[in-house]
C-alpha cells in the first residue's frame, strides 16, 4: 500500500510516495539520500538511527514514515548553521569522541536532544530528589547523569570515555573540563 507524505528534513521540504512499510530511517536513507542517520540494529537497541523528530530525539528505525506526514526531522547533517558546526559536533571533534564514526551521527543527535531535555527539567533514573528544581540543567550534568541519559546509544568501538567528555564540553558551553 502506498501513501504520499511530506517531510521537512534538515530544513528542506521533501514530498515523496512511500510504501506504508517504510520506516522513517529507510525513507531518509533510501528515498531521500540523507545518509547521516545509520542503520545499526534496526530494532531500537543501538541508537545509531537517532534523529530529532519534531524536536525530540527518537529511534527513526521504529517509526513508520507514513505516520509522520508533515513532521520536522533534523539529522546530524542538518545541525550545522551558517557553516559553523553545532557545539555538540565541535565537542566530538575536540574530544576525539569516536573511532570508526558509525554511531557518531546518532550520538550527536541524541546528545542535542538530551541536553534540551535536561534544560526542560526532565529527570533521569539517577537524579536525586523529586522536585522540578532537583533536575540538573544541562550545564550541571555530572558524568553519571550523562552516562545514564546517553545509554540509548551504543558504541562498539568503546569510545564512551571521550563521548562523555564531549557531551560534558557541549553541556558546559565551553571548551570542557
Amino acid at each position: 500500500m502506498e501513501a504520499e507524505i511530506i517531510l521537512h528534513v534538515d530544513g528542506s521540504r521533501r514530498a515523496l510516495t512511500i510504501d506504508t512499510r517504510t520506516t522513517l530511517l529507510d525513507a531518509l536513507r533510501d528515498r531521500l539520500g540523507v545518509y547521516s542517520p545509520k542503520k545499526g540494529c534496526d530494532h531500537g537497541q543501538c541508537g545509531a538511527c537517532t534523529v530529532l523528530l519534531n524536536g525530540r530525539r527518537v529511534n527513526s528505525c521504529l517509526v513508520f514514515a507514513v505516520a509522520q506526514d508533515g513532521a520536522e526531522v533534523v539529522t546530524a547533517a542538518g545541525l550545522a548553521e551558517g557553516g559553523n558546526l553545532h557545539p555538540v559536533q565541535q565537542a566530538f571533534l575536540d574530544q576525539d569522541a569516536f573511532q570508526c564514526g558509525y554511531c557518531t551521527p546518532g550520538q550527536v543527535c541524541s546528545a542535542v536532544g538530551m541536553l534540551a531535555e535536561a534544560d526542560a527539567a526532565q529527570p533521569s533514573y539517577v537524579t536525586e530528589g523529586f522536585r522540578p528544581e532537583d533536575s540538573p540543567a544541562a550545564a550541571d550534568l555530572d558524568d553519571e547523569e550523562i552516562r545514564e541519559r546517553m545509554s540509548g546509544n551504543l558504541c562498539r568501538c568503546g569510545a564512551y570515555v571521550n563521548i562523555v567528555a564531549a557531551v560534558r564540553q557541549a553541556a558546559a558551553g565551553g571548551s570542557g573540563a
Binding site: G44, G47, T50, R56, R57, V58, N59, L62, V63, S110, G113, M114, E117, P123, S124, Y125, T127, R149, M150, S151, G152, N153
Partner: peptide, 14 residues
C-alpha cells in the same frame, strides 16, 4: 522512577 528505569531517552520519547 519506574518510567525512567525503562528503555532509553529516545524510546521514552516515543
Amino acid at each position: 522512577q519506574a518510567l525512567l528505569s525503562g528503555a532509553s531517552g529516545q524510546l521514552r520519547n516515543l
